[in-house]
Design a protein around this nucleic acid. Sequence first.
RNA 1: GGCCCGAUGGCGAAGUAGUAACGCAGCGGUCUGCAAAACCGCGAUGCAGGGGUGCAAAUCCCCUUCGGGCCU
Length: 325
Amino acid sequence: MNKVLFVVGPTASGKTSLALDLAPKINGVILNADSRQVYKGLDIISGKDIPDKAEFVKTENPTKNKKYNVGYYKFNSTPVYLLDLVTPTYEFNVYDYLDITIPTIDKVIGLDKIPIVVGGTGFYIKALLDGIATVNIPQDKKLRKRFEGLQIEELQKIIKKKDPEKFLKMNESDFQNKRRLIRAIEIAQYVKKVGKREGKIAKLENMSVLIIGLTATREIINERIDERVEKRITQGALDEAKKLFDNYKNLSEQVKTGGGYRDLFEYLKGNIALEEAVEKWKVTEHHIAKKQIVWFQKDKRIKWFDITENKFEIKVKKIIDKWLK
RNA sequence: GGCCCGAUGGCGAAGUAGUAACGCAGCGGUCUGCAAAACCGCGAUGCAGGGGUGCAAAUCCCCUUCGGGCCU
């Protein structure tokens, strides 16, 4: 059976370096699963860590979307796909991710290599693994605009009326979430118009999957984050932010809200001092790590490894070898 | 030495007598097209310390301590 390896975990847990270490040993190719690293120009702050002289090698676009910049960077000898896929003004989302990633995985397998999906965006990874029933229901910009101005209570009433089933299924948190309420209405509206709810669910099928999770205590992760932030500042994070800031009004929401980006943008807007922005960046990254930990901890398929344990890589390699046989 | 102001959870900050708002951080979560997003939940039995007045005090009075300012 075809095999796909995943390496997941919070930011700063060392996913990329583990994957780069593993790839040559198992004839693997890396596929990014990070919602901000798909953007061109988000390099240092997003932690892309592309080697200095690496060149982007374009490959054939397997999708209908001409906006994707498809190809890979070579990290030493290992190709890394799904970086620099779109420009910072593009509103990338999980639909796009499935759209490009599924055929890319097929392609890698066709080359007789093992895809290694590496990243911290749990939602994208879950979508790949389990599919999203409503992923083919497109966004309705007009509808979104129309409902954006409404109060939560009004949106709640609407969904209660349009899709009572969904209404009953929503929990307290989602029920207060404007964004999710609007999407629910969007789906209800679409179903009413088109008559059916879900199309074919896009996801990986008939694959043998192994998911490696990297972890450590929150304290350790936070320390590593702080160090990384400091390092990125010296690597030119501010220049990167400035470059993007020049085009601020056209940036996608995803870029504007990215960890580090939003904090440095606040500085560039003149709202806070640079030092404060850096401190905020660290806190933002702590939040991100926390969220990732919470997300991944409930997925029972993940095999966890503590990165502070001596030679944990050897254990990882062992379990992979067993899985490959 | 004298006078004035201040002291509230890790930080910031409301509250001038009726039983401790709120923001940040922290912690616990939700998650099916923005997911590094959006959203939900939980934290002071105590208001610098001590004494007093009151049915009742973070709120009034006295003393002490520590900050800040002003005066000689």
